[in-house]
């Protein structure tokens, strides 16, 4: 029997499925888009999905280790965005375009 209170009672599964949907959208963005900056934005989406999972488990298990891990993920995400955008600037200086099809001739 299907539970009828799935819309009125928010459980951990709601948050986890929201996280899964967000991760899938981010993965689709990474696979489908060609602009390297939009690629980095999609990676940020995936990292945020993981953060939602961590905080959900931290809340429902009553432990703060998940929140500590979210700190680390945020730091890595900020570092990744900085390095990636520096690379994008380098590619743009050379090709006047930020499409990933220029990655195949980046031989210097």
């Amino acid at each position: 029997m299907i539970e009828t209170n799935i819309f009125t009672e928010i459980t951990a599964n709601h948050y986890l499925i929201l996280s899964a949907v967000l991760f899938s959208i981010g993965m689709a963005g990474v696979l489908v888009r060609r602009n390297i900056i939009v690629l980095f934005m999609s990676i940020e989406l995936m990292l945020n999905a993981v953060n939602i999972s961590f905080v959900t488990f931290s809340h429902y298990f009553g432990k703060v280790d998940g929140q500590v891990m979210v700190f680390f993920v945020m730091t890595i995400a900020a570092a990744e965005a900085a390095v990636g955008l520096a690379l994008a600037v380098a590619i743009f200086k050379r090709f006047k375009e930020v499409n990933i099809r220029f990655f195949e001739h980046l031989k210097g």
């Binding site: 900056i37 900020a78 955008l85």
Partner: peptide, 29 residues
């Protein structure tokens, strides 16, 4: 989810710093 401090950090780091970085690079291009 009662992670108030993380919510503040998320706003400052992501919606503040990282997004400013993205938008500035986009404006540069």
């Amino acid at each position: 989810l009662q992670a108030y401090f993380l919510a503040g950090v998320q706003l400052i780091v992501y919606a503040g710093a990282v997004m400013v970085l993205f938008v500035m690079v986009l404006m540069l291009f």
